[in-house]
Computed example of a mutant assay.
Amino acid sequence: MKIVFDFGGVLFRWHPASFLARLWPHRVETLEQGAQLAARFFQNYGGDWGLFDQGLIGADEVVRRIAARTGWPLGDVAAVVRAVPDELMPIPATVVLIRDLRAAGHTLHFLSNMPEPFADHLSQAYPLAEWFESGLFSGRVKQIKPGAEIFAMAERRFEARPQELIFLDDHPANVDAALARDWQAFLFTDAASARRELVSRRLLNA
Rank of each mutant, 00 (worst) to 15 (best):
residue 77 V to R: 11
residue 53 D to I: 10
residue 28 V to F: 01
residue 10 V to E: 03
residue 191 A to D: 09
residue 29 E to G: 10
residue 206 A to C: 11
residue 129 A to G: 13
residue 1 M to A: 11
residue 191 A to Y: 01
residue 25 P to N: 03
residue 4 V to A: 08
residue 104 A to G: 00
residue 68 A to E: 14
residue 187 L to Q: 04
residue 33 Q to A: 05
residue 205 N to Y: 08
residue 186 F to C: 05
residue 64 R to V: 06
residue 90 P to M: 10
residue 166 I to E: 01
residue 97 L to N: 05
residue 92 P to V: 03
residue 130 E to K: 10
residue 7 F to T: 01
residue 96 V to C: 11
residue 104 A to T: 11
residue 130 E to V: 05
residue 69 R to H: 03
residue 60 D to K: 14
residue 10 V to Y: 04
residue 83 A to M: 13
residue 205 N to G: 08
residue 83 A to R: 12
residue 120 D to G: 09
residue 69 R to A: 15
residue 173 A to G: 01
residue 135 G to V: 03
residue 194 A to Y: 02
residue 135 G to F: 01
residue 111 L to F: 04
residue 53 D to C: 12
residue 94 T to P: 09
residue 78 A to V: 02
residue 106 H to W: 04
residue 168 L to D: 04
residue 54 Q to G: 06
residue 102 R to Y: 10
residue 32 E to G: 07
residue 136 L to D: 05
residue 201 R to A: 05
residue 161 R to G: 13
residue 76 D to I: 03
residue 30 T to D: 11
residue 86 D to M: 11
residue 82 R to Q: 15
residue 13 R to P: 00
residue 91 I to Q: 10
residue 160 A to N: 00
residue 186 F to S: 03
residue 42 F to P: 09
residue 88 L to T: 07
residue 124 Q to D: 14
residue 30 T to I: 01
residue 74 L to Q: 15
residue 166 I to A: 09
residue 104 A to Y: 08
residue 44 N to S: 13
residue 81 V to I: 15
residue 192 A to S: 10
residue 184 Q to Y: 11
residue 168 L to K: 08
residue 184 Q to T: 04
residue 182 D to N: 15
residue 3 I to Y: 06
residue 74 L to K: 14
residue 52 F to S: 05
residue 49 W to G: 09
residue 59 A to R: 15
residue 179 L to Q: 06
residue 204 L to T: 02
residue 38 A to I: 02
residue 132 F to C: 06
residue 20 L to E: 06
residue 180 A to E: 08
residue 65 R to A: 12
residue 95 V to S: 08
residue 100 D to M: 07
residue 107 T to P: 03
residue 94 T to R: 12
residue 2 K to N: 11
residue 101 L to S: 07
residue 65 R to C: 12
residue 110 F to D: 01
residue 79 A to G: 02
residue 53 D to F: 14
residue 83 A to W: 06
residue 15 H to Q: 15
residue 104 A to D: 03
residue 102 R to T: 11
residue 153 M to R: 14
residue 121 H to P: 04
residue 58 G to M: 09
residue 14 W to A: 00
residue 123 S to I: 06
residue 189 T to P: 01
residue 128 L to D: 02
residue 29 E to A: 05
residue 204 L to H: 13
residue 47 G to W: 08
residue 74 L to R: 15
residue 164 E to T: 07
residue 118 F to A: 13
residue 200 S to W: 10
residue 89 M to W: 15
residue 185 A to I: 10
residue 12 F to C: 00
residue 182 D to A: 14
residue 101 L to A: 06
residue 21 A to E: 09
residue 41 F to D: 01
residue 181 R to I: 06
residue 84 V to H: 04
residue 191 A to H: 00
residue 27 R to E: 10
residue 47 G to M: 07
residue 56 L to G: 02
residue 43 Q to F: 08
residue 30 T to L: 11
residue 110 F to H: 12
residue 201 R to I: 13
residue 99 R to G: 14
residue 175 V to R: 01
residue 141 V to A: 00
residue 155 E to T: 13
residue 153 M to I: 04
residue 18 S to I: 07
residue 54 Q to Y: 11
residue 124 Q to F: 07
residue 183 W to V: 12
residue 32 E to W: 02
residue 184 Q to E: 14
residue 101 L to I: 05
residue 108 L to I: 01
residue 159 E to D: 12
residue 72 W to D: 04
residue 120 D to K: 13
residue 183 W to P: 02
residue 63 V to E: 00
residue 174 N to H: 11
residue 162 P to F: 08
residue 206 A to N: 15
residue 187 L to T: 06
residue 39 A to G: 09
residue 45 Y to Q: 12
residue 95 V to R: 11
residue 200 S to V: 04
residue 18 S to R: 11
residue 169 D to Y: 05
residue 156 R to G: 05
